[in-house]
C-alpha cells in the first residue's frame, strides 16, 4: 500500500530544475533514493516535507494532501539528515522533553527502548554526538512518536562501514515493524544491502522508480552489479 504518492513535482532554480518527479513510498518497505551529488535528491526530499515549495505537483500522504493537512501528516513522519545539527549545545533529553509536547502519540516506553537499542546517552549534548549518533538521535525521536514513514536524507553519508552496516540493519528491523523507510544515498552498496524499491534520479528527472528486482531485470546487464549498472547509466546520461 502506498503511504506517500508524489506526482509531477517541478521546481526550477536558476541553475537546476526538478522535472516531473513522481514516485510512491510503500508501507513496510525500504526505498532507496539514489542519484549522484546535485541530481536533486535533497530538493525532492525537502519538497515532500514542505520545506521547499515546488512550482507545481502533488504530494499526498495517507490519502491526504500535504498542503491541506500539514500538521496532521507531519505527526506521522520522521525526518533525519546527517548534515544538519539541531541545537548543538542542548542535551538530547532537553530536545526530547520539548519535542514530545508536540506529539500526542509520544510513547515513553518506546523512547526508552530505542535509547537503549541505539546506545545513546540522553545527557550528551548534540555536538558531542558522532555523525552516526546524530542520525540515530533523529531516528530515536521519530520512532518514539510512532512515525509510520521515515524520510532520511543521506543518513549513511560520512559514516564508517560499521556504522553504515548497523544503520541498514536498523532499517530492516523497522521495515519488519511496518514502517516505510525512504532514504537518499549515493552509496550504492547501502541500496544493495537493504532496499526493496529503488527511485533513481539523474539531472532532476526520475529515471526509474520500481522494485529493486525489477530494476535489475530491466536495467542490469548479465553479471553486472547494481553499482556497475548505475555507473553505466550515469555515463550514458552524460554522453546523451
Amino acid at each position: 500500500m502506498s503511504i506517500a504518492e508524489i506526482r509531477n513535482l517541478n521546481k526550477a532554480y536558476p541553475s537546476f530544475r526538478l522535472q516531473d518527479v513522481s514516485f510512491d513510498i510503500r508501507e513496510g518497505r525500504i526505498t532507496g533514493f539514489i542519484g549522484r551529488n546535485g541530481a536533486g535528491k535533497t530538493t525532492t526530499i525537502k519538497s515532500i516535507l514542505n520545506l521547499v515549495h515546488p512550482d507545481n505537483g502533488e504530494i499526498v500522504y495517507f490519502g491526504k494532501k500535504l498542503a491541506d493537512n500539514e500538521s496532521e501528516i507531519k505527526k506521522l513522519i520522521g525526518y533525519s539528515t546527517g548534515s544538519v545539527n539541531w541545537y548543538p549545545r542542548k542535551k538530547i533529553k532537553e530536545i526530547v522533553s520539548t519535542v514530545r509536547d508536540f506529539y500526542d502519540t509520544w510513547d515513553e516506553e518506546a523512547y526508552r527502548r530505542y535509547l537503549s537499542l541505539f546506545n545513546l546517552d540522553e545527557n550528551k549534548a548534540a555536538r558531542e554526538l558522532s555523525e552516526g549518533m546524530k542520525v540515530k538521535c533523529n531516528l530515536l525521536i521519530a520512532l518514539s512518536h510512532k512515525a509510520r514513514i521515515l524520510i532520511l536524507d543521506e543518513p549513511t553519508s560520512g559514516l564508517d562501514p560499521f556504522s553504515r552496516d548497523e544503520l541498514t540493519e536498523i532499517f530492516i528491523k523497522l521495515k519488519e515493524e511496518g514502517v516505510a523507510v525512504f532514504f537518499s544515498t549515493h552509496i550504492i552498496s547501502d541500496i544493495e544491502k537493504c532496499a526493496d524499491d529503488i527511485v533513481y534520479i539523474s539531472g532532476g528527472r526520475i529515471v526509474a522508480a520500481l522494485p529493486k528486482k525489477e530494476f535489475e531485470t530491466r536495467y542490469s546487464l548479465p553479471g553486472e552489479s547494481l553499482e556497475e549498472t548505475f555507473l553505466r547509466m550515469e555515463r550514458g546520461e552524460r554522453n546523451a
Partner: peptide, 17 residues
C-alpha cells in the same frame, strides 16, 4: 545558529505556527 527554524518547520505544525 542552531537551525531552529528548520527544526521547527519539521515539527507537526503548520508553517505559520
Amino acid at each position: 545558529e542552531t537551525n531552529d527554524i528548520l527544526f521547527s518547520a519539521l515539527l507537526p505544525l503548520a508553517k505559520r505556527d
